[in-house]
């Protein structure tokens, strides 16, 4: 079966600089599969998600590689066509539900606007679909929520609304960028369960960005470990938790809190491992410059 999303040898750099923020990143995701992207802060996890969804900051250029969405090379498409393809087949579940809803608009159009404006549904049909989705994300009084403004809803409610909005057009691919970090712990679990539930029901391919290896073990089938914009390890979840291939991955796993041994999990990542990983990234860069 061919992958719904394929990222091939993708490199991106800050406009006007030689320094890359993504270093020859490759991976692919099949329909119904969840890929975890893990790595420390600044590793480039969000950058990959943004590249896939066509929302890279203007200061970041893609310098090589390709992103194939549903078999189509995004970089080769006209911007308007690319936007349409992404809008019709992919969706984002953002990190912070407090800032991801437009404060001056009611909830209903924020769920239905993609359906109406981009996909050409009638308002009535879109409304029916929105109500259906709010039910799916277990919102009790969807009519009232649709008529509300974002500030009238709690953080957890807003994230439910955003998840409903993401799944509204039956996307083939969902990018979830740390979708629970801005929520409090009790709500986090519910939202995580909800995302898994909808992903499974709709057999959506999903890129799941997180710091939390515990979450990866529950949500993902495969994971990619990023360091300095480079994927240092691609593994299935089972393989990874059996024993990571890369030294940096091992250090990352060792630094993850465990119930069984809370003391050990507080140990910092070994300096030598970090240095080795950094050296590896730099070596890859040298090779890349000579090659290209």
């Amino acid at each position: 079966m061919s992958a719904f999303l394929t990222v091939n040898n993708l490199s991106a750099s800050l406009h006007g600089y030689d320094q890359r923020v993504l270093r020859s990143v490759s991976f692919s995701i099949d329909t119904g599969e969840v890929l975890g992207l893990v790595g420390e802060s600044g590793a480039g996890k969000s950058m990959i998600g943004k590249a896939i969804l066509g929302i890279l900051p203007s200061a970041i250029d893609i310098v090589e590689g390709e992103i194939l969405l549903d078999g189509q090379d995004l970089e080769k498409m006209k911007p308007a066509d690319r936007r349409r393809l992404i809008g019709a087949t992919a969706a984002l579940i953002p990190q912070d539900p407090l800032t991801a809803l437009n404060p001056s608009r009611r909830i209903e159009p924020q769920i239905t606007n993609r359906l109406v404006d981009i996909l050409g549904w009638t308002k009535a049909n879109a409304r029916v679909r929105a109500l259906e989705l709010l039910n799916e994300v277990h919102i009790d009084n969807p009519e009232r929520v649709m008529a509300s403004y974002p500030h009238e809803l709690s953080g957890g409610m807003r994230q439910r609304v955003l998840i409903a909005s993401a799944f509204a057009a039956n996307p083939k691919l969902v990018v979830a960028d740390e979708p629970t970090t801005a929520l409090d712990v009790t709500v986090q679990k519910q939202i995580l369960r909800l995302i898994r539930e909808l992903q499974a029901r709709h057999s959506t391919a999903m890129v799941f960005v997180t710091h939390d290896l515990g979450v990866v073990s529950k949500v993902c089938q495969r994971l990619s470990v990023l360091y300095g914009g480079k994927i240092v390890e691609n593994s299935s979840v089972a393989e990874f938790f059996d024993g990571p291939k890369h030294a940096y991955s091992r250090a990352l796993l060792a630094a993850t809190p465990k119930y069984t041994d809370p003391e050990a999990s507080l140990l910092p990542v070994d300096e030598a491992v970090i240095e080795a990983a950094a050296a590896e990234v730099l070596a890859a860069d040298r090779e890349w410059r000579h090659g290209g």
Partner: peptide, 10 residues
């Protein structure tokens, strides 16, 4: 964020 989110919608 909500502006970026709108971009991803197409």
């Amino acid at each position: 964020d909500y502006v970026t989110l709108a971009r991803t919608k197409g």
